[in-house]
């Protein structure tokens, strides 16, 4: 299902970051979830986990959270390394990436929600990425 992604800070996620607890399970609890409108939540089959995929094909699995704070057709993910897997580098020539208002695909997910250390190892291990990327992969 196509949906609009917004990301942003929350006080609890902020407290994890400012308190240096970025490699703890608490950070996963506070930043690795996805707020979904009740109608969309039912349409997705009342999932425990959701998989978000962006236009480049990058995807991340998050806890699904039903909340009426969201409007239908929109999701919210707290700021952090999980959200940034699917945030795109499109900056409209301002330097500021598309943290808000970008279309993504959402579906019921399977597999674990990665902890911060596992996530970093999976996506950003220096040794495996040293080989470089093709221009096509680097383009937005």
């Amino acid at each position: 299902m196509e949906i609009i992604l917004n990301t942003g800070g929350t006080a609890f996620q902020g407290a994890c970051v400012k308190g240096g607890r970025k490699f703890t399970d608490e950070y996963t609890q506070e930043a690795a979830y996805c707020d979904i409108n009740p109608e969309d939540f039912v349409a997705l089959g009342k999932p425990w986990l959701v998989k978000i995929t962006n236009e480049y094909g990058d995807s991340v699995v998050l806890q699904a959270k039903k909340t009426d704070r969201q409007q239908k057709g929109e999701i919210f993910i707290p700021r952090g390394p999980w959200a940034n897997i699917v945030v795109t580098t499109y900056t409209e020539s301002t330097g500021s990436p598309a943290y808000k208002n970008r279309k993504v695909e959402i579906e019921e997910g399977s597999g674990p929600v990665l902890g911060p250390v596992t996530l970093m190892k999976k996506y950003y291990s220096k040794r495996t990425n040293r080989t470089g990327r093709t221009p096509a992969e680097g383009g937005a």
Binding site: K22, G80, N84, I85, A98, M120, Y124, R133, G138
Partner: peptide, 10 residues
């Protein structure tokens, strides 16, 4: 590392 999009962190 936590606050830039994936393609930039790569």
């Amino acid at each position: 590392g936590a606050h830039l999009p994936k393609r930039a962190v790569e």
